[in-house]
């Protein structure tokens, strides 16, 4: 099969959420020494992009989109070590620190956002749940993050989102590091009021919102 045909198969594996096929195609690409960057950019990435389009058009629902994200992640786990071996860096859309704010132990929504961002080319550092505000800042400085994504499921921890923005301003990091907020009680008005750079209602719109800030 020619490269174009292979790329189409990779794209379709991701769109259809066929993890086994995605892994098999990625493995074959490694064994046949294909150009990894080309495999990612022309094969798998168009698949996750198309899945996002299908969600936006109402044809796909969250489970289909998560399946596509899983395929992308599985393929990347096979391809990434080859890139490193070859001394090539995969293009990343940005380094993201993500976590649920101190006092809040809910993490399923945050996990979905992290997986969707990872599948769409962002480099994720997931700090987990119940994360101290200072930890977001110190980790962001340590890895030179482009984004901090803050999840709050509670009105009592939403205020932490505002505090982090203040802390970033005090350290003159605000603007260099974009802050995105989300979570059940959070809305665009709150994001605007606290001066957040972005707001996402769900895991899928988080990708769009993050890309807008590029």
């Amino acid at each position: 099969m020619n490269k174009t045909g292979l790329f189409e198969k990779m794209k379709m594996a991701v769109i259809e959420g066929d993890k086994h096929e995605a892994e098999s195609l990625a493995q074959n690409a490694v064994e046949s020494k294909m150009e990894m960057i080309e495999v990612i950019e022309k094969g798998f990435t168009p698949g996750i992009q198309k899945a996002g389009d299908l969600w936006e058009s109402g044809e796909y629902f969250l489970p289909e989109l998560i399946s596509s994200a899983e395929c992308m992640t599985s393929a990347m786990k096979i391809l990434q070590p080859e890139l490193i071996k070859a001394g090539v860096s995969a293009k990343t859309l940005g380094k993201v620190i993500i976590g649920t704010i101190e006092g809040d132990i809910h993490d399923i929504g945050k996990n979905l956002v992290a997986s969707m961002l990872a599948a769409n080319g962002f480099e994720i550092t997931d700090l987990g749940a119940d994360v101290k505000l200072e930890k977001f800042i110190s980790k962001a400085q340590e890895i030179n993050a482009d984004y901090i994504c803050l999840s709050s499921l509670l009105t009592t921890t939403m205020i932490g989102q505002k505090k982090i923005i203040t802390m970033l301003k005090d350290k003159k990091l605000f603007g260099h590091i974009k802050v995105m907020v989300g979570g059940a009680p959070v809305n665009s008005q709150w994001a605007h009021d606290i001066g957040a750079d972005g707001y996402a209602e769900n895991a899928i719109t988080a990708v769009t919102a993050a890309k807008k800030l590029l």
Partner: peptide, 18 residues
């Protein structure tokens, strides 16, 4: 069980269980 599935990149299984 849900967390373990998510860690193993079985995100949809983990999400459904949650």
């Amino acid at each position: 069980a849900s967390s373990k599935l998510i860690e193993k990149n079985k995100i949809l299984d983990g999400f459904i269980l949650d």
